[in-house]
Simulated assay, not measured.
Amino acid sequence: MTTGGTTRESADEPDGGGPPEAAGTGTAPAAEATGADATGGGAGRGTPYPDPSTDEELLLLAAYLLSSGRGLLDEPQVYGTFRCVDATRRVLVLLRRRGVGHEELDRLHRELEDFMCGPMTPRDLPVFLDDLCGRFTVLLRDSDLIAPAPVRAPAPAV
């Protein structure tokens, strides 16, 4: 895929697909040039980044979210839905780069990728998003992808 005059290897990149203003530069400075830390976080803690450009992609994602927030002031409301879906798709790619892997996350990503970058097919958008949100909720609740919330002791009676 070509973005900003550079070639991307696949549409699996976080800035692949989506509106033109979401496209990145396609450049990836070497980790040693940026001083990037080579350890990840989240599930798979301490695993090396598979790609040292993850920090750059996070910065591009932050810029995309910020510019999306600004654009939503003047754009049709439905654009916000598509921008949020695209941002979710991009975050899942970045998580995979950090070594966070789970079958259901991969399935969710493939569905989001198909929705954003695949052929345009009629869908019941609320039903599609409700299904994805429900599955994501169950995944986070039932897996070890996130740490459980700490149990708080009840506050003493006063």
Score class of each variant (00 low, 15 high):
133 C>D: 12
131 D>M: 07
113 E>W: 13
74 D>M: 13
91 V>M: 11
98 R>P: 00
95 L>V: 01
123 R>Y: 03
90 R>H: 03
87 A>S: 05
87 A>E: 01
95 L>M: 09
83 R>F: 04
127 V>L: 07
103 E>H: 10
124 D>G: 06
114 D>H: 13
125 L>H: 03
120 M>P: 11
109 H>W: 14
87 A>R: 04
110 R>T: 13
122 P>H: 10
80 G>K: 11
109 H>P: 11
102 H>F: 05
120 M>K: 09
87 A>D: 01
106 D>M: 02
83 R>Q: 10
123 R>D: 09
90 R>T: 05
132 L>V: 10
107 R>F: 08
129 L>G: 00
124 D>S: 11
130 D>M: 05
81 T>A: 12
140 L>G: 02
89 R>V: 02
83 R>I: 03
121 T>C: 07
137 T>P: 01
116 M>A: 14
136 F>A: 10
118 G>M: 06
137 T>V: 01
96 R>Q: 10
116 M>L: 15
85 V>Y: 04
99 G>N: 05
78 V>N: 06
130 D>V: 01
109 H>C: 04
76 P>F: 14
93 V>D: 01
96 R>I: 05
92 L>I: 04
97 R>I: 12
125 L>Y: 08
104 E>D: 13
88 T>N: 00
90 R>Y: 01
80 G>A: 14
76 P>Q: 12
78 V>M: 09
128 F>L: 09
135 R>V: 06
116 M>C: 15
97 R>S: 11
100 V>N: 14
99 G>A: 07
129 L>W: 04
104 E>F: 07
115 F>Y: 10
87 A>H: 00
130 D>Q: 08
92 L>Y: 07
122 P>Q: 10
97 R>V: 14
126 P>G: 03
88 T>R: 02
114 D>R: 13
109 H>F: 15
106 D>I: 05
80 G>C: 09
117 C>M: 15
132 L>D: 02
111 E>D: 15
75 E>G: 08
